[in-house]
Design a protein around this nucleic acid. Structure first.
Lengths: 150, 150
DNA sequence: TACAATCGTGGGTTGCGCCAACATTCGGCT
DNA sequence: AGCCGAATGTTGGCGCAACCCACGATTGTA
């Protein structure tokens, strides 16, 4: 889990800006995630996890719906699903009622992989929030919910 | 200032994860920034702003020092500085005491551009934090400082 | 003087988020 | 029934941020 290259010193005009702080924090978070995926992710990335999670949560879906649910572009869904299918984590079959669509479902190995990734990601959450007190974590959740989906 | 493509619905295992929230918030922030730069940034990007800000703050520096200060890779510093120099926002001259180095300094037009970008970015901060109360903003600053530089 | 370190530079790569175009298929309207 | 527009999956591309590696030139040091 590599940390992002830290600035040695930060200009005053930046260091108190909310977007700057948020960006730095997100950089740390995504570095932690990338490191975790690299070390224990079997070559999978964020897109794969998000797709597996959506499939587990809502069951078989078309690729377009999957994209809308996850906020991933249709074209990126295609690519990520192909890799998931090669690994046998996901199955795609033509919807006979609508032959444009492909119904995607998660396989038992896919479920197992998802559970494993869950554990990996839980470790990342803990590493990220380590410097925060319990009260600060509550504030964090409250504030981030507002900023994430205003 | 386009918002990022939002997920229609979010899997339970994701929506409460700190990294997920942070990622979403950062996505919003960077979308706001990208939009602001695209509309009012004269074709400049984040790297350019960070370099100009560092130069204004600490005066002329070599490119390698500039990279260390800003957390930007040496090679990316080179590219961004070339674009800044083409626009006349920055000047580079060989350090006669050490001919490997190039001393970079900000020009008067560069300073003016930096001030202008400051105003643009101030607007982004306000847009980002709009949903937060004054107390929440204080918590935000406190928490983010911890997460950004642990 | 040989060697190691530093500097600027160019060329790649990766992840994520987009957009445009295309052929196929479906649905609604006339 | 026929036509047109919309949706679907796919390919290929772009941009940004963040990296890495390798090179020639230069410097400092052993």
């Amino acid at each position: 889990m590599r940390e992002p290259l830290p600035p040695r010193r930060t200009p005053d005009r930046q260091k108190d800006r909310p977007t700057w702080l948020l960006g730095r924090a997100a950089a740390r978070s995504s570095a932690l995630l990338a490191g975790a995926f690299a070390e224990q992710g079997d070559g999978l990335r964020g897109y794969h996890y998000r797709l597996l999670a959506a499939l587990e949560q809502w069951g078989p879906e078309s690729q377009a719906d999957l994209g809308r649910d996850t906020g991933i572009d249709r074209s990126d869904v295609t690519g990520a699903l192909q890799e998931l299918e090669e690994r046998g984590l996901v199955r795609r079959e033509e919807d006979r009622a609508n032959r444009r669509r492909k119904i995607v479902s998660i396989t038992p190995p896919g479920l197992a992989e998802l559970r494993r990734l869950d554990d990996v990601l839980d470790g990342v959450q803990e590493a990220l929030l380590a410097p925060l007190s319990a009260a600060q974590r509550r504030h964090y959740a409250e504030i981030m919910a507002l900023l994430a989906a205003p």
